[in-house]
Structure formats: C-alpha cells, structure tokens
Nucleic acid binder design. Structure first.
Length: 472
DNA sequence: TAGCTCGTTGGACAA
DNA sequence: TTTGTCCAACGAGCT
C-alpha cells in the first residue's frame, strides 16, 4: 500500500494481466496502481453489447477481479459515461495519470480522444497503448501509401513486420492506501433474467485463465490439424479463441508468439484476418452500416420479416442453415464454415440486407466484434473488401453434404431430423413419405418445408446482382 | 504509366 | 461418381 498519487489503469477490451502494455507501463512508473472498469450501458461510443456479449463480460470481469485479488488488489467497478467517471475518480483519488490500451473502432477512437483532452485539461496525464492489435492501423500501408483492401498482399506485408514480445504477467501490484468502493458487478445486470444462457456455461470459460487454457489445448492438439479440420463443424478443429480475443483476455500477439510460424501458418492467417478486419474498420469508418463498394447502395434488397424470423430461429427448412442458427442461439457461437453457409443463405437466397444479419449476430454471438462482424457480412454479401464474387452462391444442400457428411453436427442441433438417413438429411423434402414417417419427420409439422426453392432463389439472386450492375 | 495477374472458403453442368 | 470447364466482374497491387 502506498500514499503516493496513483496511476489509474482503465481496463476496456483488454481484460487480462499478461501482455498488457497499459498495466505494464503503470507498474513501471513505480506509483500505486488503481485498476478500473467503467460500465456504460450506452456502449463506448459504439452500439451497446448484445445479450450474449453481456453474459461473457460479466464472467470476464469477475475473472479479472479474481486475478487482481491474487495480486493484493481488486477491480474497481464504476458506472456511467467513462469521461465523467474517470475525471471524477481522478479528483477523488488525486490520481496523477490514467493509462489504457487503445480500441480502434472509429466511434470509440473519437470518444477516447475527447476523454484524453478532458483528463489533460484537469492536469492528469493520459497515455494510451496498443494492446489489441499486432500492428497499429496507421503503420500499415501498401506501396502507394493507402490501406490494403486485399488480404493476400496485406498478409505478405505484415508477416515481415516485427511484433512486441509478449509482456509478462505481474507478480504483485502496489495498491493505493484505499480503493474506492465502486459498484457491485451484480448491479450492472449483465446476466439474463431468464436462464437462456445455461448452455453457455457448459461451453465456455470466460476470462484470462479460460483463454490460456483454450490456447494451450489448441496448441497441443488442434493447431497441427487445423488446415484439415477447420472446415468440419462436428469436430473441435478450430481454436474457439474468438470471444477471448474480442474481450482482450488474450492478445493476438501472444498467439502469434506461441505458435510456430511455419507449422501453424493456416491458423495464423486467421489471426491476420482479424487484424485486417480491424484495420479496414479503422480506415473505412462507415462500413458497419454502409457497403464498402458504393455500387451496392443500389442493390435491390427485399425486406421480409417472416423470412428473417425463420432464419433467426432456425426454421428455414434447410437443415445445415437451421443447425447453425440453433447452435448460435444455444451456445452464443457458430462454427465458421456454418457461419458462411447461414449468412450467405440470408443474403443471397432470402435477399435480406446484410445489415439485418449483422445485427442478429451482434446480439447473439459471444464473440460479436464490430470489425470482424462487419467484414464478414460484407464479404458474404459481396460488397466488402476482397469479397466473394456475386455469382458464388453457396448451395446449402451440397455444403451440408460436403462438410457434415456423416451428419453428426446437423443431428446434434436438429433432434427432429436425427433419425433421417444421411441421404436425405440435408434435403428432407426429397425423402419418400414412408421414410419420413418412420423417422418421425412431419414436413410442415415438426419441421418446415424449405421457405424458398434453392434453384429459384439462386436465379433471383443472380438477377438482383444483374439489376444492380445495370443500374450503374 | 499501362498492362498484367490475381483474388480464403463455389456451383452448375456436361461428358 | 468423378473430373473439367465455364461462370464472368473488376479493382487492387505490383512491375
């Protein structure tokens, strides 16, 4: 404990002790450290977290608090606008500085710039660091000096840039003589009132320890087979680190240094995709709502609330799509291969605006991340960076057969279809009536007929793209 | 500068 | 059942 004027470490999306530049710098200052989290229901300049993310945040904050207690400190929780909460806290505690790790979402950058100014105006030092990306978006550009818009050149470029050696976890914190009481975690009401998140508890361990465990499990097992297994949703072939990365319980930097550059290249490419998404959002600030390719403003989206609802609830009549949407609802996560199939279906088969799909993912994913979500949806819709060509329309039947050939994944999430043989699992409407009856499937009863015909929907999508092209 | 090559994840159809 | 070919648009990035 110390009487000296403290340095506040403002935790945000960096809910970890290891490889945390703001925390390390605060410790290096030799002053007592005051760890703070401010909960702003309105969001931090961006849209408020969805329900699944809130569930995660609750547990992640609890975990960080626990870790800080192990170092003789604790996490002080505040509520309200971050600016006023921090300014007031500095006054109350006589703090001489506030340190934090940057976020790069445009709205957050804008808000943080204001906060920095207010703190400096009060005579408080405000310093920010890069803890969440391997490279600052401002430091990466192509030979013309503009941001990369195609992944492959971006990937080639960043592989040769140096990255910070991960910073060690501190063994102790000097704390101020007294810590403000702050709010209780429960008062933030982040957990759902209804118990819909029960399934989440079985799937996830939020917090830095959970992240470390997920990484070591993946490094020992899945990483070596990643290239082969990552497209098989029934197998734990992916790292499942995305929510940990989103909340900063682990840094991309730690992953980059923990894995072998050559052996694990296919996986590290994915870490680079995350980086790419964040850089894109930083440079193209309107992309959460506006297409990166301006000609897509003329795309003839339709709006059909009934179809949107059917998609959201896993009732489209296409089993692989519905399986994915139900996995999402029950666990807050969906396998990447299935995300592509399900999102392509919404955008291309149902011609619903990609923004509606992005909004649903934002609400239901535990790894909902503005940069990744935006890039992913724009890629699927064909209106983003390095996007899929418009004529590339995933066939939900053959995608199911190809990537879930034995039906393990689909049967897990679609119990009403579990007794169908593989031959008809992805197209139950083609099964003979007697077989359906034997399997207990009543089309239009306990499982819907397809809401659109694949062939017709495909043609309608191609026509819609042609219409947009002709409108130019 | 002008021209060339290439683009995470595909589908349909014919042979 | 498998394999090959076309679909076909356009801008980024490089030389």
């Amino acid at each position: 404990m110390s009487d000296a004027s403290p340095v506040i470490v403002w935790f945000r999306r960096d809910l970890r002790l290891a490889d945390n530049p703001a925390l390390s710098e605060a410790l290096a200052s030799g002053e007592p450290v005051l760890p703070v989290y401010v909960f702003d229901e309105e969001g931090e300049g961006d849209s408020p977290d969805g329900a699944a993310s809130k569930w995660w945040l609750h547990h992640s904050l609890a975990s960080l608090d626990e870790s800080l207690k192990g170092l003789g400190s604790r996490l002080v929780l505040l509520r309200g606008s971050s600016k006023s909460a921090l300014v007031e806290l500095c006054r109350e505690m006589g703090a001489r500085a506030v340190f934090w790790n940057r976020r790069y979402e445009p709205a957050v950058v804008e808000r943080d710039t204001e906060i920095k100014k207010s703190l400096v105006d009060c005579g408080v030092q405000a310093r920010s660091f890069n803890g969440s990306l391997m490279q600052s978006p401002l430091s990466v550009a192509n030979k013309s000096g503009t941001p990369f818009k195609v992944f492959t050149p971006f990937w080639k470029h960043i592989q040769n840039l140096s990255t910070r050696t991960p910073l060690a976890k501190p063994d102790a914190l000097t704390t101020p003589k007294s810590l403000p009481k702050g709010e209780s975690l429960e008062s933030f009401e982040l957990l759902p009132r209804l118990s819909w998140a029960d399934g989440f508890n079985e799937e996830w361990i939020p917090g830095e320890k959970g992240a470390e465990k997920a990484l070591s499990l993946f490094a020992k097992g899945g990483a070596a087979k990643y290239a082969k297994d990552r497209d098989t949703p029934s197998v734990r072939g992916v790292s499942r680190l995305s929510p940990h990365l989103h909340f900063g319980e682990i840094s991309p930097n730690q992953i980059w240094h923990a894995l072998d550059r050559k052996k694990h290249e296919p996986y590290l490419r994915q870490i680079a995709w995350r980086e790419f998404a964040h850089h894109l959002l930083f440079h193209f600030k309107d992309t959460p709502s506006e297409p990166l390719r301006p000609e897509f403003a003329a795309f003839p989206w339709t709006r059909n609330p009934g179809w949107l609802k059917a998609w959201q609830t896993g009732q489209t009549g296409y089993p692989i799509v519905d399986a994915g949407m139900r996995e999402l609802w029950q666990t807050g996560w969906m396998h990447n291969r299935v995300r592509m199939i399900a999102s392509s279906f919404l955008v291309k088969h149902l011609l619903q605006p990609w923004q509606d799909g992005a909004a649903w993912f934002w609400d239901t994913l535990v790894d909902a991340d503005l940069a990744n979500n935006t890039m992913g949806w724009q890629w699927v819709a064909g209106c983003g960076a390095d996007a899929a060509p418009y004529f590339r329309i995933f066939n939900p039947i053959t995608q199911g057969e190809r990537f879930d050939g034995d039906g393990t994944y689909t049967r897990r999430w679609m119990p009403e279809l579990a007794r169908l043989p593989n031959k008809y699992l992805f197209k139950p409407w083609e099964a003979p009536a007697a077989l359906l009856e034997k399997a207990g499937v009543d089309l239009g009863g306990n499982y819907p007929m397809p809401i659109v015909d694949h062939g017709k929907a495909r043609k309608a999508a191609l026509d819609a793209y042609a219409e947009m092209r002709d409108a130019r």
